[in-house]
């Protein structure tokens, strides 16, 4: 099965975290329809539960996974698990708060946002390992955050069936995030390639892999191209466009995550 559960888990959980943040901030700053908010919360909650469930598939002994919560002292994996678990619980509480005006819900939303960020950061920290030079920097955190930021707003936008000004602002935000992540990715790969040893071989693994160009295409080039074209033609995107953009970026992120796991070269004894 390899790392597939991890690919799915990380992308889904980051999408959910991004969605949770978007939802709670929208709720805090704007007005959201109660039932739509409730439904969205439920979906996000289910996605988090699902992604946690998928992550268990990665374990040799999924039924003993509860033990993974015991080393928050030093293990980022423990912290990650705790934070996502906590996020799930908070969302559950949040779910039951969708009744008219509710300031507790709004404050809770802020807490959820913070926990979501922390959860994604801790997800990234899991991979900050000196043994894997390509990961041993802030890139895992950065790219994980980008994943959440690129997918979450679009997801919520679609869920809430937004149409107003928030819609176009979120779309613009997504475009900016995509552009930023593309730039970071280019810088990251160039730095790797110009390095030596395990970093350089990670770099060439990424570029040399058959997935590199497809990923570039669906994750960035196509979506950004569409954005540019729409802006140029002064057409405001509709739901259909956003929906297809979302699918593209989602697939792009999955491909990217695949590369993340399979292309990174760990330190090892220089044997034959």
């Amino acid at each position: 099965m390899g790392e597939y559960p991890l690919i799915l888990f990380t992308v889904l959980s980051q999408l959910s975290a991004g969605a949770a943040i978007t939802l709670s901030l929208l709720d805090y700053f704007t007005k959201i329809d109660n039932s739509a908010g409730k439904k969205s919360t439920l979906v996000v909650l289910v996605m988090i539960a699902l992604s946690l469930g998928i992550s268990l598939l990665h374990l040799g002994h999924p039924f003993n996974a509860y033990r993974a919560l015991t080393n928050i002292g030093s293990s980022w994996l423990s912290r990650e698990a705790i934070l996502f678990f906590l996020l799930g619980i908070l969302l559950l509480v949040y779910y039951f708060q969708w009744k008219e005006e509710n300031s507790f819900r709004k404050s809770l939303g802020l807490i959820i946002s913070v926990v979501s960020v922390l959860a994604v950061v801790s997800s990234g920290m899991v991979y900050v390992l000196p043994a894997v030079p390509a990961w041993n920097n802030f890139s895992p955190i950065l790219f994980f955050l980008f994943t959440g930021a690129a997918l979450g707003p679009m997801f919520i936008l679609l869920m809430l069936k937004l149409t107003n000004g928030a819609f176009s602002r979120l779309v613009q935000f997504t475009a900016v995030i995509l552009a930023a992540s593309l730039m970071c990715f280019i810088v990251y790969v160039s730095v790797l390639l110009s390095g030596s040893g395990a970093s350089a071989s990670t770099g060439s693994q990424i570029v040399g892999s058959g997935i590199f160009w497809p990923r570039l295409l669906v994750n960035w080039i196509l979506p950004l191209g569409i954005f540019a074209w729409l802006t140029f033609k002064r057409i405001s995107p509709d739901r259909k466009v956003v929906c297809s953009l979302f699918v593209m970026v989602f697939i792009g992120e999955l491909l990217g995550r695949y590369l993340f796991y399979y292309a990174s070269v760990a330190l090892k004894v220089a044997g034959l």
Binding site: H58, L59, H61, P62, A68, L129, A131, A266, L267
Partner: peptide, 11 residues
């Protein structure tokens, strides 16, 4: 529990 973290982390 077989999470393989250690294998990833050990140089």
């Amino acid at each position: 529990i077989g999470c393989k973290m250690c294998a990833m982390a050990c140089p």
